[in-house]
Simulated scan of single mutants.
Amino acid sequence: MKPQYLVLAIACIAAFAAAGSAGAEEQRTPVSQCQAIAENIPKVTFASFSGAAPLTPAVSEGEEVKFTFLGHSTFEIDTPGGIVIATDYNGWYRPATMPDVVTMNKAHPTHYTLTPDPAIKHVLHGWSDVPGEKADVDLVVGDAYIRNVPTDIRFSYGLGGSQENGNSIFIFEIAGLCIGHLGHLHYELTDAHYTEIGRLDVVMVPVDGGLTMGADSMSRVIKRLRSSLILPMHRRGPPVEAFVSMFGKDFDVANAPDDSITVSMRTLPKKPLIYVLKGVQ
């Protein structure tokens, strides 16, 4: 067996063994199956797993994850186990039911609220409330494992300069899927970021064309991640077309008839698909 394949096999076995030996939720230590291989092979690009057919109903129950675009950069993520997650929660765009988990980022007030509903059990900041420290999210809620990868942000409103670790890429590991929300990403990712992220099968990406990054810079990030399903968000004016124009024949593009999509490990597109949900178009 070639050395690189042996490393892959060992990393996979270690991750699955650790997960299998875990006990009850409050007793187990979270283990990232999306990141385990990346830690052993730095500077590699991880293609996501692909299913047998694009965007068809799951073959069996208990493996589907539903994504609903609520507005701006807020998605509702519904897990097979009934956990409801809202990304970049600002209190304006809300799921129909009370979310169990909300994530937030600090770049603009449209991405967070300091007065969330007290009934929300888990409010996860993408920034640290302690100056000079990074946010550190490592949490299991039902059938979802949630972690973060901090990134820097520019100061708002043209003040110049940047703030270290003011944004987080939140990663949700659900039903075997590796799901990433890039938040208010201002700078292209480093090799260290990609290693920490690992594999992403589904990624939610801002396509505003400038408030975060230009279409060319953001497209380079997405090409490097090479996720199976790319869900644009955070659109202003026409940049969704500008973003899409950066991709060639290696990516498919489709406009959705509604604001949600349900996907599983078995139904991921074979070829990377940029899927523009209703409300983003």
Rank of each mutant, 00 (worst) to 15 (best):
T190I: 06
T212S: 15
L273V: 07
D208T: 04
Q163S: 14
H193W: 02
E188Q: 08
S50G: 12
M233Y: 02
F155P: 13
S245I: 03
M1Y: 09
I274M: 11
N105S: 14
F251Y: 13
Y112A: 15
F46L: 14
Q281L: 06
N90E: 14
T115H: 13
T87D: 09
D136P: 07
G142N: 05
D129E: 14
E188N: 04
G248P: 07
M213R: 10
V263D: 12
P238F: 03
V59W: 00
H193Y: 00
P238S: 09
P109T: 15
F69G: 10
T56K: 15
S156I: 15
Y275I: 11
E26K: 05
K270T: 08
A36T: 03
G198H: 00
W92F: 14
V276D: 07
I197G: 04
V221M: 11
M213N: 05
F67I: 07
R199N: 03
K2S: 11
S50W: 01
T190A: 03
I153R: 00
G132E: 15
S21R: 06
L225T: 04
T115Y: 08
D152C: 00
V149K: 01
P3R: 09
K2M: 04
F243M: 06
S219Y: 09
G81C: 06
S60L: 06
S156V: 14
T212N: 14
L231H: 07
P3F: 07
L229H: 02
C178Y: 05
T267V: 11
M104N: 14
P80E: 03
M98A: 12
G71R: 01
S219E: 08
I41C: 11
I274R: 04
Y5A: 11
L200M: 10
F75Y: 13
V149N: 03
A22Q: 10
M218S: 12
E173V: 02
A96N: 10
R236Q: 10
H234V: 05
R154D: 05
Y5T: 10
L182E: 07
V31C: 05
A52Q: 08
T110I: 14
F16Q: 13
G126L: 05
V101S: 04
T262R: 15
R154K: 12
K134L: 04
P118I: 01
S21I: 04
V280Q: 05
V102Y: 02
P131E: 14
S264R: 07
F16G: 06
S217I: 01
I83Q: 07
K249A: 14
K134D: 09
K270F: 00
P3K: 06
V205Q: 01
L277E: 02
S60C: 03
Y145S: 13
I83E: 11
